[in-house]
């Protein structure tokens, strides 16, 4: 009898835990949807440590955009709520995004409790140190209205990329989202797992080895893969790439990134954090 009660309690805890995770995912996706129409303004400290640059930190008036894709986020990441924290004097809920498979970078997002939009986010290396971080230092009294359009994933782009580069093994959960041509020949394919961004490049010349870069000679040219992934993952992705024909990608050229139009927002239009969104 005592065992039965204990078992029931454990099952109940597991169910509650799952419900809490589902609720966390729903709340985060609702906030990301809200961020397509509402944006905090003020002073943001933007730090990028990967890729390395001379001045890793700069200041901006709003958070840099991250092309969040809710459908891929729920497919590729476990989302958990990690309590409340203050950002620039405002109360936020901290959400943790951990990859379900693979070794993609983890993300942390701080969502304003009242406005239900991000006030900070951070991409972390596997050891937890930041690779990319943007945090409000000061926030204006009211958020601004914006209109962020996120283009749909181009139908047929993934098979076209795999046909153009036979043998390519994209890491788990990663999808191509756009193609553009390079000035000196070759193509740049943008990839994402919902949060992280990667670049696949065909070029007439190779590129020097460095952290986050893999390059492989294929036929008369080269293929590069760039992103915040362990070196062996990048190299494995390209290890069996053979000579292909990139002509099939031509129809996907000039896929624009998200376009943003901003306008003054005299009145905020916050929505409750419990709002649901279809990814």
């Amino acid at each position: 009898m005592r065992g039965l009660v204990l078992g029931t309690a454990l099952v109940g805890l597991l169910v509650l835990s799952g419900a809490a995770d589902a609720s966390g995912a729903d709340d985060l996706l609702a906030a990301l949807k809200q961020a397509r129409t509402l944006e905090a303004r003020g002073t943001v400290e933007v730090t990028v440590l990967f890729p390395p640059r001379d001045l890793p930190t700069k200041t901006a008036g709003a958070l840099p955009r991250v092309p969040f894709r809710p459908g891929l986020i729920t497919r590729n990441f476990n989302i958990s709520r990690a309590g409340q924290e203050a950002v620039a004097g405002r109360t936020t809920t901290r959400f943790e995004l951990t990859p379900k498979v693979g070794q993609a970078a983890r993300w942390t997002l701080w969502i304003d409790l009242e406005w239900n939009i991000p006030l900070a986010y951070q991409e972390s290396f596997p050891d937890g140190t930041p690779a990319r971080r943007a945090v409000f230092q000061q926030v204006s009294a009211q958020p601004a209205r914006v209109k962020v359009a996120l283009p749909a994933l181009p139908q047929g782009l993934r098979p076209a990329v795999l046909a153009a580069l036979p043998g390519l093994r994209l890491p788990a959960g990663i999808q191509p989202v756009g193609v553009r041509s390079r000035p000196n020949g070759g193509l740049e394919v943008s990839l994402t797992d919902g949060v992280n961004v990667f670049a696949l490049v065909t070029a007439p010349r190779g590129v020097r080895a460095a952290p986050g870069i893999a390059s492989r000679k294929v036929g008369g040219g080269f293929v590069w893969l760039v992103g915040n992934l362990p070196q062996n993952v990048l190299e494995t992705a390209l290890a069996k790439v053979g000579r292909g024909d990139t002509a099939g990608l031509g129809t996907f050229l000039k896929v624009d990134a998200s376009k943003v139009q901003t306008s003054p927002a005299p009145q905020p239009a916050p929505q409750p954090a419990s709002q649901k969104e279809t990814p």
């Binding site: 933007v46 010349r205 590129v207 020097r208």
Partner: peptide, 22 residues
Amino acid sequence: PAPELPASAAYGVYQRAWGDGW
């Protein structure tokens, strides 16, 4: 064979993929 490009060439492509603001 043409000499390899510096790593900054690949990092530049990666940074463009992130878009403006970073």
